[in-house]
Write a protein that binds this DNA or RNA. Structure first.
Length: 490
RNA sequence: GGUCCUGUGGCCGAGUGGCUAGGCUCAGGUCUGCAAAACCUGCUACAGCGGUUCGAAUCCGCUCGGGACCUCCA
């Protein structure tokens, strides 16, 4: 398979030509959500980013195994040893079984993914479903001398590991600087070194989620699950690992250390990091209290929103920015996207009604290649969208008779829109759909005919009254040379 | 404090050592009974100051602003 996909590899800080380990196959792992509360829009952006990556790899013809985990062990709310498990805390709060909390928010997460047209991964493993494997990997790391047990917990020996392998390569951290800059966290007595991180934590009686292990009752550390689940399903070394920028350190750094510590192999060929969604320039985060849930967004029921926006408008908005850049969320930006998106959807419908000519004024093949090139250049969706708007202009111009295309070019225009708009960008034509029921169609024909008769008689009072009445029930009338069309936007 | 990223026209956002995306807004025009839609035209920006270069918004330095990570985080 010959292609020229370039991916910005976070670990080397440059764009690199993508070559899968196994020709024709791609292993893709993305850090999924911790299911202890509703996902917010920032989370959605990351999953959407990798949804497009996944879709494009499939478009290129790769057989992709896409693994996205569910973190259903809550880990600690703080860094102290007596910190509470997030899921257990929520369980107490909501008076639920921990696994009930997990199920509730997993379901919610899936609903959100569906609403935004984000495809399901091939495998969606859970942390609690892989406790045995996590224990095994911890044992391997201990066996290799890079971890030690202390008072029923197990810690990764960062200093020891760093003697042989570089720790901090991904996040650009230098171990000695970390010492001077790490805050003095409490509960460090068990660790040999303040930089060491937990692989396994001893659980006291108050912990709800705990398992038996060679080191006693406890629960796994946060980072180990991803090391285990990625390599279990994708191999000791696999192609692409994705996640949010905020996971670079410590999570991804620790993942690398764990995998290398256990197997001696670098686990990941290409690291991809999606950037943050910001609100007024600040990262959207639960702790900041500036997060929108998808529901608030759709209904517009939020103090920072003037109105609601459809999921596809939001998808379009996200894709108009590059995944590696921060994107600022605002009413104005959303509204601009909404209008543009609707215009594109309208053109998409026109696309089916174009008449062919015997010559073309526009190089459709070159235009299509630009779209492909843009995706190949580190998934540059903003360029793709700008090209699609170019296509919109062509479609409308052909419709207006200002431009002509051959039947073959019209066909290529259609297949390109199908590939990029629907398959790769994962958009759908949700707006302005006609109600296609027979009755609606017939009724509208009657009304339009009445209006046209009134117009022919210069009875504009009547024709405008009809138009306004229809507008009041969200039916929009468009007059053009070919006649009158309508869309229902309710 | 340390590490790193970033500063683009009214707004949002690509991109790049020379050919200067795109969307939204605004102004004018075509079409139209009017409107809407569509199309055409206009508004031509890269924080500031230096430097490298035939040429920089794009590379380098400094200054100023914004942000992320260093703690759970997509």
């Amino acid at each position: 398979m010959e292609q020229n996909l370039y991916i910005y590899n976070s670990i080397n800080r440059e764009k690199e030509r993508f070559e899968p380990i196994t020709p024709g196959h791609v292993g893709l792992y993305v850090c999924g959500p911790t299911v202890y509360s509703d996902v917010h829009l920032g989370n959605v952006r990351t999953f959407m980013t990798f949804d497009v990556v996944y879709r494009y790899l499939v478009f290129l013809g790769y057989k992709v195994r896409y693994v996205r985990n569910i973190t259903d062990v809550g880990h600690l709310t703080g860094d102290s040893d007596d910190g509470e498990d997030k899921i257990a805390k929520k369980a107490k709060l909501e008076n639920l079984e921990p696994m009930e909390v997990v199920q509730k928010y997993t379901n919610g997460f899936h609903d959100v993914m569906r609403i935004f047209n984000i495809l399901n991964p091939s495998i969606e493993p859970t942390a609690t479903g892989h406790i045995v494997e996590q224990i095994e990997m911890i044992q391997e790391i201990i066996g290799n001398g890079y971890a030690y047990e202390s008072n029923g917990s197990v810690y990764f020996d960062v200093r020891k590991f760093n003697e042989k392998y570089p720790y901090g390569k991904l996040s650009g951290r230098i171990i000695d600087e970390l010492y001077t800059n790490t805050r003095d966290l409490d509960g460090q007595d068990e660790k040999r070194d303040s930089l060491d991180f937990a692989l396994w934590k001893k659980a006291d009686d108050s912990h709800l989620m705990k398992w038996n292990s060679p080191w006693g009752i406890g629960f796994p550390g946060w980072h180990i699950e991803c090391s285990v689940m990625s390599t279990k399903y994708l191999g000791k070394s696999f192609d692409i690992h994705g996640g949010g920028m905020d996971l670079k350190f410590p999570h991804h750094e620790c993942e690398i250390a764990q995998n290398v510590g256990a197997t001696g192999h670098e686990p990941v060929r290409y690291w991809m990091h999606g950037n943050m969604l910001t609100v007024n320039g600040r990262k959207m985060a639960k702790s900041e209290g500036n997060g929108f849930t998808p529901e608030e967004l759709i209904t517009g029921n939020h103090k920072l929103l003037e109105k609601g926006y459809s999921p596809m408008t939001v998808r379009f908005f996200f894709l108009m920015g590059h995944y590696a850049s921060t994107l600022d969320f605002s009413n104005e930006a959303l509204q601009a996207s909404e209008k543009g998106y609707k215009r594109m959807c309208a053109a998409l419908k026109v696309l089916d009604q174009l008449n062919a000519s015997d010559k073309s004024d526009f190089d459709i093949t070159a235009w299509r290649n630009t779209c492909v090139d843009a995706m190949n250049d580190d998934f540059n969706t903003p360029i793709v969208i700008s090209q699609l708007f170019e296509g919109v202009r062509v479609i409308n111009s052909v419709k207006e008779g200002n431009m002509s295309l051959t039947a073959g070019d019209i066909e290529l225009l259609k297949t390109t829109f199908n590939s990029f708009f629907f398959d790769i960008l994962g958009l759908s034509n949700e707006d302005g759909g006609s109600d296609n029921s027979k009755l609606s169609q017939s009724l509208m024909e009657v009304i339009i005919q009445m209006r046209n008769e009134a117009k022919a008689n210069k009875d504009y009072a009547t024709s405008d009254k009809l138009r306004d009445a229809l507008a009041a029930i969200q039916v929009k009338i468009k007059d053009s040379k070919e006649g009158t069309s309508w869309t229902y936007e309710g």
